[in-house]
Each structure stands twice: as structure tokens, then as C-alpha cells.
Design a protein around this nucleic acid. Sequence first.
DNA 1: CGTGTCGTGGCAAGCGATTGCCAAAAGTTG
DNA 2: CAACTTTTGGCAATCGCTTGCCACGACACG
Lengths: 333, 333
Amino acid sequence: MNSPKRTTIYDVAREAGVAASTVSRALRNPRRVNAATREHVLGVAERLGYRPSPLATALQSGRTATVAMLVPDITNPHFFGTVRGAERRASAAGITFILSDTEESADTERTKIEHLARSVDGFVLASSRMSDESVWELAEEHNLVLVNREVRGLPSAVVDSRAGSRQIVEHLASLGHRTLVYLSGPHQSWLAGERWQGLLDGARNLGMRATRLGPFPPRVVGGGAAADAALVTGATAVVAHNDLLAIGVLRRLAERSVKVPERISVVGYDDIFGADFCVPALTTLAGPQDEAGRSAVELLLENRSRSTARTPDRRVMLPSHLVIRGSTGQAPR
Amino acid sequence: MNSPKRTTIYDVAREAGVAASTVSRALRNPRRVNAATREHVLGVAERLGYRPSPLATALQSGRTATVAMLVPDITNPHFFGTVRGAERRASAAGITFILSDTEESADTERTKIEHLARSVDGFVLASSRMSDESVWELAEEHNLVLVNREVRGLPSAVVDSRAGSRQIVEHLASLGHRTLVYLSGPHQSWLAGERWQGLLDGARNLGMRATRLGPFPPRVVGGGAAADAALVTGATAVVAHNDLLAIGVLRRLAERSVKVPERISVVGYDDIFGADFCVPALTTLAGPQDEAGRSAVELLLENRSRSTARTPDRRVMLPSHLVIRGSTGQAPR
DNA sequence: CGTGTCGTGGCAAGCGATTGCCAAAAGTTG
DNA sequence: CAACTTTTGGCAATCGCTTGCCACGACACG
């Protein structure tokens, strides 16, 4: 492995009979050299199979053409769409994409940022678990864009959960439900707060009663306890923090022979893979998660200007929509 | 963003009253400097919040402490486990993890490798779509480890599909099936070949008849055509290239009111998320995919020695096991 | 034909580390 | 105490590329 020597800009320069600087310019700054020279240099470069060293370029110019995305848990299907969108966008721009798992920990998040800081142009923080202050503080030093999280003055791409949550409530109300229980996600999750607020707003408007339980681990296994807890509240509808949890709930309810949706309706968030073929199929709030990832990278790219001048905080808010399936139905009477 | 100036090794050197080289040694090569000086330097470095520049280090030393993983399609749940395992392992070793999607294309694969070559210490190629020759050729120049793919003389980590496929056949035979049809995956997929061979072997041993159909796109949508094609063969059991396809088949069969497993049994591969809660739950060949990812990175790390001397080809073969669920049953008579 | 402008290309100084080589200091030995 | 070895720290080159600055020639203009 590792060829003895890769061809450098100097090899090209020598072969083409010009200075290294000219080669560099021919490559990066076309208008700075004579068209003819440029052609020639490009030809030689091609012939020699020259490939620039991203490292050297980055070291010198300060631009790494790399972005990193930090995700609390790559295992969680919730993030698949976002990761995919971000990767695609980066790749399309010829930007290297680093993916890192932060294990649901704010500390790990901070550590990784510090660690990667010099190797990337910026970070996409998906559902960051850090406090507002921490994020804000880090943003002083690093180029950050948030996904599904908002912090005063920082660029972000979020899928609207509030309006979506209100849609959920309206949907439930239209089916005759008068009470709902929200099975909350992680304590530090901004999204969980948003969702709850949206539900609360909606409930208030429609005169429904909404209660919150949890937090529960936002995974299938969390659904057991969540379902049991939900049942004792007597609510006719449960809204789970995400589809994973909702699927867990569905499973537990089936175990306990509680009919869905006859006896109780279940709603999730994210419309992950599988939400359409679990039984009953899950009513869920779908959103363009990959679009969020895409936008985030885009914002990052815009921001690459090294000016300390904060760009007018760019925020992207993406609409969500309710996908109605078999897990919601008329409230029992 | 981007603080005006990050502290460099020189800042530390000045502040500590030593030469830059000493600082470098204190950090990397402890035994090369006096313990006292070392303490002092480390203290100053700490106080100044010094963080080495991975770029500079890499440029000089040739080691980037970075690995890249190339995946045909990050969207495909099949790879989630592998990606996760690889990311975890890299992260644990303090190694930066680059993830890239090759869009099921051998060309993209090659391009990306070429592009990243200078920025990484090696590549993990998951289910590479390149020809044996291409891979072999690239391996001359780059540090490669394959996942779920074998090429003469190259290190690889694979989940055993052959033995697993035989298990599948045995299982089906024990249920009285006499014929099975394999719904094949992508043409260039090595794995598809392995699986088919395993099925064929098994069938031969047990006197069953096995036929192959396809290739089909290994996604849920591929299941429609696949199911229809399978039905006309009259086989009582279908083995789909992966769970995605199997789930698509299940769905199509349900649409056509073909009872599973009464009328026909369905088997998948991978045991992806959802395989346990689709209806009927899917019998599938499960394997430690994350283990494969983990091992691959490990092999890469071992190989980092820049010696051109090929290390004794390390291969890791991981056992798979059959998970039997509701989609397989007694053959109809 | 002198002078001012532009268009091009080269020189050389970094970017932030690592490392071979050398020399001074310290320790060892007879 | 001389001669020698070992420890320890510094100098400076190097990795491959970018870019500010300068110089040279061509061309335009009066």
C-alpha cells in the first residue's frame, strides 16, 4: 500500500516548465493565468495523474472542505433521514463528510467538537443534547448549524413540530378524543419540549386535556413502561415522543390485549421505516428530515466566510404533515 | 466564528521557554524529554488550551488518524449495523470516521477513493460493487479492508452467508418444502452470489430444487415484481436477497391475498429493524453486522504500518444464525 | 518615443506540526 | 580527573500547497 511518492504540484510544475505557484493558480484561480498556460498545465497535471493533497491545502488555506455531523445515536432511525440528506448535500458539493456519534451525551458532544475543530469547516449538530448556553458558547468559536434544535441567534434547520403537534391534536379531537397523554422523550431534548408545547397549545384550543409522562428512553424498549403508564391515566389517546417508542407501545398493548385503536389510539413522530407496516400501521407526524440535513449543510456552506461578522441568523423551518394510518380511530365512548 | 488565532506549538514553546521541538516531543514522545520539562510543558499546554492541528500532523507524518467507510447506499438498513460498528470502533481508537455513499456505483466508489486517498489512512469498503480486479488494483495503492466481500489476498470481515444459507434450506426442508426460489439482489453483489451458492449447496444436499430469479432492486419496492415472479414458479418457499426485499414481497403477497406461510413461506437476510414486527414476522438470517464493521476497522488499524509488505491476509468470518419467525411454516401439500 | 496600465509568471514566506542531526550538559568509569 | 557514554534540548529541513508582492514585457496613449 501507500505508493512510494505521490505526484505533487512541484512535479507538475517541473514537467510543465513553470513555477509551482502557476500550477496552483491554474488549478484554483483560472483567471489569474494565461489561458494557454493553463491548458498546458492542466494537461500535464492530468497526464501525471496529479491529485491535490487536501491536507496541505487545508493547512495553508484554513479551509478543509470538510464538515462534521454529530448525532446523539446513529442507531436511531430518526436520524437516518437527516444523515442521509446531509451526506448527499456535502457529497454534491465535493465536501467530505464526517459522521460522529455522541452517545446521547453533552460532554461527548463537546469533546468531539473540540477534537475535530481544526479538521473541519463546521459542524452540523443534530438534536444536540447540550444546553443553550453551551451551544451558544461553542458557536463563538466554531461554525455551527443546528438541526431540530433552536438556539437564539444560531442558524438552524428544523422540521416544524409545534404546528405538527397541533395537527395531531386536531386529528384526535375530530375522532372524539377528549384526553391525551404525551409520552415524553429525553429530558434534555429540545424537540420533546417543542412537541409537548405544540400538543399543549392544541389541547388548550380545543378544550382537550393533555398530560405528560416520562421521560422514557426513545426506543422500542421504552414502550413497555410507557404503555403501562399511559393506560392507568385512562386517556383514550397516547402520543409517543417518536415512532420507536410508539412501536414499543403498540407492542406492549398487543401483549396486554388492549385493542388499538378501538380502546386507545396511538400516534408517533418521524414516520420512520417500519411505521407503515407495524400493526396497526402507525399514525405519525412525517417531516422532511433529509431536507433538514440538506439545508443544514447548505447553511454551513454559506457561512464558511471566515468573517466573524455573524451572518443574519439563517433559519430554515420545514413543514411537517400528519400521516394517518390504522393506529388512530374513534374514541371509545 | 473561527477565533482569530489558535494556539500553536510555538505559542506553547515560547510560553514554556523551550523550543517547539521539545513541545512536540513532550506530547508525542515522552521518553525523549526530561520528566520535569515534560510536566512543565504539558502544564503550559493545558493552561493555554493547546490542541494539536491534525492537519499539520498528518501533512508531516503521513498519518491522518482517519478512516473512510464507503457504502453503496446509506439509506439501506442493511448497512446500519455495519456503519455503527465501524464508527464505534474508530471513535474508540480516537480515529476520525468519514462516511460516504457510493450510490451503488463502482465508478463513484473509485472516484471517492481517489478523492479521499490523501486524507485517510485507509478505507473500509462495504459490499463493494467493484470488480475483483478493480479492488485488487486499488489495493496496491491504498489500504483497504472489505466488508461482506472477499477478494483474493485482501483483508476482509464477512458475515458467513453460505453456511447461513444452508441453514435456511435445512429449515425449509424440515418444514416439508421441496422447492425454493431465490430472489436475487444486484448483479454485481458478491453477497448475492454467496447466498445463492449457499442455497444451491444446501438444496443439492437435501434433494430440493432451487431456482433463481432477478436481479431485483434490494428495496421494499422491488418486492412487488419479485413476489409476482416468485408465485408463477409454483415454489412453496421464497428466499429474498434481503429483508427489505422480503418485506416488499410480504406486502405484495398480502395485497394479492396469498397467505404466508400457509401458502408460501418467506425468508430474508439481515434481520433488520422491522423484521420482527412486520406481518407475519420475518424469518431471517441474522448476523453480527456491527461486529463486521468493528472488525474491519480493526484490521485497518493493524495494517497502518506503512510497510509495503503485505501483512498475512487477515480475514474475519463471523457466524450467522437463523431467526425463525412467523413467515415460514409447513409446506402446503 | 516616454510613461502608465495590465496581464502574467516567479519568488519566497508561511500554515503547524515532526524528526534527523548535532551539541551541550550530565553521568559513568577506570 | 580524563575520556567516554548517555540524556536532553535546539536547529532547521520538510510535508504540499496558497498567496502577497514584485518584476518583466506588452500594449496603449499622448
